[in-house]
Design a protein around this nucleic acid. Structure first.
Lengths: 106, 106
DNA sequence: TTATTATATTAGCAATGACTAATATGTGTG
DNA sequence: CACACATATTAGTCATTGCTAATATAATAA
């Protein structure tokens, strides 16, 4: 197994650390969508969603292809799709035991 | 597939969103360790590590078993272990293309 | 029982991340 | 060309998260 640079890894994982980003990932998991479609899906605001999209792209989780005035975003590849599925599998397994982690760190 | 509550999901994913927490997960992935062993492994400070451990526990990613004055932490189960491995598999695949995401959101 | 070691918790400050609003860029259309 | 639409970017502010230092708790050892 090739060595993974820790900084790269954190950049990647950062993609999953915000609700809006995770919702975007779910929204484009099975089919590519334009920014406005995503904005609609999530009932978000354009600027905000665009910023999260830029982040997800930087994290390597999604790719965007431009077509005229639209940009179509989709999950990068099948591995990333599998990873998203895996989250749900693991969660299904542990969800009932998850204790409160309200303060997230304390 | 059972429905995953979005709040629970975010709590879970939050566990992976900080370098120290990821390092802790890696440190206890294959063998359980006491807090002080982890503090040593990571060259961290006790209070800080304790706080991250509490977070990881709250996120459902690790479990701690108390034995006398020691607490042994380990990854919750094989599924979580698999998920950690999967991160590396996916990363190996995309690591070279990951563009900068320096600002993480902008 | 006093001291020591291991871990957890709290409070306050420092740092990072996210949101909104405004504006810029780029593309097609009347 | 002027306008409208889709998306991106920037700046400023607000909110969240994380760190350090101090202290608390709990278990063992002297």
């Amino acid at each position: 197994m090739v060595k993974i640079d820790s900084q790269t890894k954190m950049k990647f994982l950062h993609g999953f650390s915000h609700k809006t980003r995770v919702q975007i990932l779910e929204s484009v998991k099975e089919e590519e969508k334009t920014v406005s479609q995503i904005v609609n899906d999530l009932n978000g605001n354009q600027s905000n969603i665009s910023q999260h999209l830029a982040c997800l792209k930087g994290c390597g989780l999604i790719v965007g292809k431009k077509d005229g005035k639209y940009v179509y975003y989709s999950v990068r590849n099948q591995l990333v799709r599998d990873l998203l599925t895996m989250f749900d599998v693991v969660l299904e397994d542990i969800q009932n035991d998850i204790a409160y982690c309200e303060k997230h760190i304390d």
